[in-house]
Amino acid sequence: MEPILEIQHLSISFHQYEKGFVQRELPVIRDLSLTLEPGEVTGVLGVSGSGKSLLAHALLDLLPYNSRREGTILFQGEPLTSQRIRKLRGKEIVLVPQGVTYLDPLMKVGPQLRKGRRDRGAREKVRSALARYGLKEAAADLYPFQLSGGMARRVLMASAVMDSPRLVIADEPTPGLDAKAASRLLGHFRELAAEGAAVLFITHDLELALAVAHRVAVFYAGETVEIARASDFPEGRLRHPFTQALWDALPQGAFRAIPGAQPYSGEVKEGCPFLARCPHPGNGCGQGELSLVPWNEGMVRCLYPHGEVMA
């Protein structure tokens, strides 16, 4: 089947003025490639500040004006130009944003979801979208500040599925929910995928990603270091030492954390940014640019993917 979204060598950077007129290019995401298939939930895993929200906004062509984007994005096989995305936003490509600050504080929920339409059909659509996530019709008559954290999450969710989207981009949709509500929400994403959509599920929580996603892309210092199937984690088929370390830090893994901290994007000028913390560095790891290569039915950015060194 044709993939819904293909991201090829996407880079996002900011130009900033530091001390007067000296301009500086500040990379955030470097060389990201990812393919989203219909019916699949793809997790994107990264620490806070690693550019996850920027990735979501970049796909919708809604980056801040002081940023620059490079690379290619194909939607259903065709380049996603600015003109094209404008027609697709809110219909075929939708965003479930990170927090309640994404709701207009001075507008009631109903009118916000109706996007300015007043007809019966629009009202009915809002009612059923809210009902889908267990919200009563009365919720449409509330201002955002009157919503509880969980209700706000569900309103944001409802605002995304007013039509039947092909691509759902969810930016950390679960904080503020209790375990039960969170797992119900994860179920909803699975449901959307089952209806034929591709879901990009952004999170900083590996357990959460593994609970909902079929595949997981792992960010490290602005780069994707590995794209693995969710089943690769418990079955010991991980390719990159950082992904392995993430898994090892979980209770299901060895419950063991690695020392050191993640560098900022662009901080390591040459070679592998994980080198300083790598348990099995090898020749050439400190030089050149590493690229993301297919490995064992996944992708990895490492000269000595797991297995090579072991052998």
């Binding site: 919708l60 936003r89 600050t101 996007k115 605002s159």
Partner: peptide, 20 residues
């Protein structure tokens, strides 16, 4: 943020200025 979401929902720029 809420203007970003309004754009992501597909609302038009002119309508966004007037409505939000």
């Amino acid at each position: 943020d809420y203007i970003l979401l309004a754009r992501a929902r597909g609302e038009r720029e002119g309508a966004i200025v007037l409505r939000h």
